[in-house]
Amino acid sequence: MAAKWADVQEGMEIPALKKNPTSQQLVQWAAGSGDFYQIHYDKDFAISTGLKGIIVHGALKHAFLGQLVHDWVGNTGRIKKFACSYRGMDYPNEEMTCRGIVKKKYEANGEKLVDLEIWTENPQGQKTTPGTATVRLP
């Protein structure tokens, strides 16, 4: 299943990852990441800060994009770098689709590398978390 450099073509899409973070998952993430900021699980608190409700942690979206890339790379390659910007808020119980497209395939310092554009999409199709990744493949 793991991606092989020889099979990669610039412009190809990697398999999308569908997520639907529930409030339960946000609580799991609070424990898993150690971030207990109340805007992510306490609706009254979130509204008191001016939000319309609890919001998905930015770092969880970063980790979702990490899962997207890991599931494509597998364990024979490695993620060298992955980054994203938090451009829009996402709310729990909404479908979020993580996607990626190959931007560049190249070799450097003896490594076979691929640069990806990655992002999360909300149900309206807006890219709320655009980013990039660089991976090493066998």
Binding site: Q28, A31, G32, S33
Partner: peptide, 27 residues
């Protein structure tokens, strides 16, 4: 902590949960 983090993201790759699978994959 690795298992808790992986579970909270929703990872399905056994390397994050099962040490034998992780070692078999070279970690």
């Amino acid at each position: 902590s690795v298992r808790m983090f992986a579970r909270s993201v929703g990872h399905t790759d056994p390397v994050y949960y099962d040490e034998a699978a992780a070692k078999a994959a070279g970690y």
